[in-house]
Amino acid sequence: MRVDVEGVTVELAGSRIVEDITVRADAGQVVGVVGPNGSGKSTLLRCVYRALRPTAGTVRLDGDDLHAMDARAAARRLAALPQESAAEFDFTAAEVVAMGRLPHHRGGPFAGRPSGDAALCADALDRVGAGHLAGRGFRSLSGGEKQRVLIARALAQQPRVLVLDEPTNHLDISHQLDVLSLVRDSGLTVLAALHDLNLAASHCDLLYVLDGGRVAAAGPPHDVLRPRLLAEVFGVRAHRVTHPVTGAVQLLFDRIDPTELPDQEPACP
C-alpha cells in the first residue's frame, strides 16, 4: 500500500513544527526519516498514525485521505509503534498483542475475541521469535523483548503499512539489527524515524532528511548522505565508507571545529 504525505504542515500552540512536508513511500518500500532532535520527525509520523491532525496538507493511503477515514478503518490498514511504551498496568505480552485486534472488533458489551484471534496473536508472537514470552508481564520484559512484542501487536493488527518512531531507541546493537530486519522482512510499507544514520543507510530504500521542520533532502541513502548536507543539517563532519559485506554506504563522524566554516565540501572518498 502506497503512503503519500502531501504538503503537511503542523502548527502547535502558534509555532510551526513541520512545514509543507511531502513524503512518498511506495508499496513494500522501507522509508526512513532522519534529522536532528527537534527537526519534526515525530510530529510528522504522529500525523501519519493519526495521533495528530495536520494543520494543512493530507496523508493518503493508496489515494484515500487517511484523516477522513473512520478511526478503526484506518487502524486496520496502518499500524504504529509510537515512542511511548509505558504500560501503567501489568498486561501480559499476549494481552498486549491481543490489543492489535481491537480495530477488527465491533465493541459489544464485554466483547470477547472471535475464534481465530488467539491463533493469529500467537502466530504474530512466533513470527517475531517471542512465542515464549506470551505469559510474561510486559513490564518485566527487557527493552528488546518489549519491542518484539510491540511489533507482534502491530502484525496482529494485519496492517498494510507500519509506522515506527525511533524503534531502536535504548536497544543494544544486536537488538537494533534484529528489530530493523524484522521490520524489513515483514513485507509491509514501512515509514520509520531513525536516529542512527548508519542503520538508516543500511536498512532503508529511501531516506528523507528533515531539518527545522522541512525536507532538506530525499532519495536513496547513497545519494542523500553527502558530507556537505550532513555538515549543514547535523553540524558534524562525515566521512563516507562502504560496508565491506553489505556494500551499504556508512558514515564515520567527527566534530566540526566551531571556527571552521562549513563552506567547503569535505573530502569524499
Binding site: 495521533a51 509510537p82 511504551s85 509505558a86 498486561f91
Partner: peptide, 9 residues
C-alpha cells in the same frame, strides 16, 4: 498503553 498507542489502534 498511552494516547499515542490508542490512536494507532
Amino acid at each position: 498503553m498511552g494516547d499515542e498507542t490508542a490512536a494507532a489502534l
